[in-house]
Amino acid sequence: MSGNGQWPLWEVFVQPPGGAPFEHSGSVHAVDAESALQNARDVYARRGEAVNIWVVPTAAITASTPEDQGPFFEPGNDKPYRHPQFYSSPRGVRV
């Protein structure tokens, strides 16, 4: 950011209290993991929103592309066995 240097981007994931899953909060610039973690905590967790924080170099993330959206994600109505409604259970039994 000084013009010469590299301040890699890090993606910040925050786990809210109460056993919830991690959520993507945004990003921070930092030279290394330790300062990325500290920055993330100061920027995204100063209101008690987090019990845990992950920082990941943006470059380390492999993402699906928009072109993938169709075939990659399509559950296919031809695979109903993935859904609980496909299965029946005897009356009165909770499964």
Partner: peptide, 11 residues
């Protein structure tokens, strides 16, 4: 010196 530090020092 950096925006992130404005936040950190204020904290």
């Amino acid at each position: 010196p950096i925006l992130e530090e404005d936040i950190a020092l204020a904290n």
